[in-house]
Every structure is written in C-alpha cells, then in structure tokens.
Write a protein that binds this DNA or RNA. Structure first.
Lengths: 139, 139
DNA sequence: GACATATACTTGCGCGATCAAGTTTATATG
DNA sequence: CATATAAACTTGATCGCGCAAGTATATGTC
C-alpha cells in the first residue's frame, strides 16, 4: 500500500457521502413531486430573494447551462417558477419563484429538514456548523 | 425569511460541493480514459485488498446494482478488472483488480492527488483530516 | 459605425444511472 | 422435503445531464 494524500481521500469521501445523502433526500422529496436540484433552486431563489439568471443558477448548482434549461422547463410548466426578461440584457431570461412555488417550497421544507436532521443525527449542531463553514472555503 | 435548520444547510452545501469537485476531478481523470466512479472502484479494491461483490460496490458507491453492472462491463472488457465466482454463493460475481488495472490505478493516482490537492488548497491538512473524520460518522 | 469576440442561452445527440421486471441461487418455514 | 421468500444480479425502458454546435444579443476595437 502506498501513502495516500489526505486531499484524495477527502474528495472521494465527499463524493460518496453526497451520493448517499442526495439519494435519500431525493427519495423523501419525490413524494412532493420534486427533485433535490429543484428543491435547491427554490431554496436559492428564496434565500437570495431576487431573480436569477440561468447562468447564475448553473454556476451555483455546479451544472451546465443546458442542464439548467432542461431542468427549469417543467418547473415553469407546472407554475413553480416564472421567467422574466432582463431589460438591461435581453440575452438573459431571469427566473423567479411564483407564489405557488413559494408555497410548495414551504411545504417541502419541513419534509426536507426532517430528513436532513435524520441523515445528520450522528453529528452535533456545532460539528455541522463547522462543516458548513469549511465547505464555504471550497465553494 | 424563516429560520433554517443547520442540517438542511449542510445537506445542500454538501451536494453543491460534491457536484463541483466531482466535475473537476472527472475532467482530470478523463485524460486517462476513466470516470470518477471507476477511479473510486479501483481505489476501493486496492484499499480493501480483497474481491468485492457487485452489491458491496453498489452500497459503497451509493448507487444501484444495475448501475454497477453497467459500469463494470466496460472495465472488464478493457481488462481493468476481472470477475470470479464466489464458491460459497454462486449468485455472487466477485470483482478484483487485474495487474494492468493496478498499474492504471497507480498512474491515475498521481493525477488524482494533484487535482485533489488543487481543489482543497483552501483547507489546511488538519482541516481536511477533520472533515474526513466527520464524514466517517455519516457514511 | 463595422467587425470580431464574448456571453447567455437552446437544441440534438449520447452516456451514465435509475426503476421495474425477470432470472438464478440461497435461505427460512412448515 | 417442498414451498415461500429473499438476495444477487441482469436487462429494457427511461431520464437527467453533459458536450458540441447553433442562435441571438452584448461588448470591445479599429
């Protein structure tokens, strides 16, 4: 066995953990008819409290622009989000949460925080805060 | 704005971080012709130093059994891994790294640890160790 | 003001992964 | 021992997402 770098181990464990947590969170969210990424988009729109461009969402989610386009399509069809033009830059198509989208988010949030606290029950509050803080240095 | 649970934030940030890191790591690994998950499988087989069943790999990777089947197929075709029967349980098809697979892993590892240390350069050694330790409590 | 380059998407194609269903082998129960 | 149930895969259909290429608009340069 060779010596292994801690950073390699970190990247691997982070990927494995995310795969597990995301899957379980997705399962819980599926009863509300939304995916984890859709939930994260709603969360972002609520938290930032502004309209977001598709590129902004793509960077935030760490996915491609085309992925965002395809993801938002059904969300707009079902009325969760609404699109608006940016008058300053007509290339952009801004996204905002509709009122029914906000209601859906609030309903879903309680489900989500339940599953999230189940999934992280092996960590103390302060350990979780520390993790989120360190994640911030990498994002 | 409502009060948000730290565990929700943790699950979201973890997913976002993994999306970013995985994508960058995948890009680097693609020059060796392998995906991140393939690298993780090789890493697992080397670290555990034993043959693994497909179910075991699926649980470790946090993916479905069918996903593992499909993922291993080309790896076996190109000779990275070999399959062996489990004599105690003939339902199982055990996976082990071939010698050329081991060589590929060693080559790839240096690439991987380089990109990993780039990606985590904002964290100290001990912070990374702490993170890996806390990840262990959740996996 | 014209032209080149960059940005913000959108669309076609392909890959990787999931789910549901099917097959084979193991295990538990009467 | 027979039957039922579970476990370990495999396969078909499908979906989400990325990449490459195309379009429309903005910006920078001569």
């Amino acid at each position: 066995m060779s010596i292994e770098s801690i950073s390699s181990l970190f990247v691997i464990k982070n990927a494995l953990l995310a795969a597990r947590l995301s899957k379980k969170a997705s399962n819980r969210l599926s009863v509300h008819g939304i995916s984890l990424n859709e939930y994260i988009v709603m969360h972002y729109l609520v938290s930032s409290n502004k309209e977001a461009s598709r590129i902004e969402l793509a960077e935030y989610l760490g996915m491609s622009a085309s992925g965002v386009t395809r993801m938002l399509l059904p969300m707009e069809k079902t009325g969760i989000i609404e699109s608006a033009r940016n008058l300053r830059d007509s290339r952009q198509s801004l996204v905002k949460l509709s009122t029914s989208g906000l209601r859906l988010f609030e309903d879903t949030s309680t489900s989500f925080s339940h599953i999230a606290s189940e999934l992280t029950s092996n960590l103390s509050q302060s350990q979780q805060e520390r993790l989120v803080e360190l994640f911030g240095k990498l994002i």
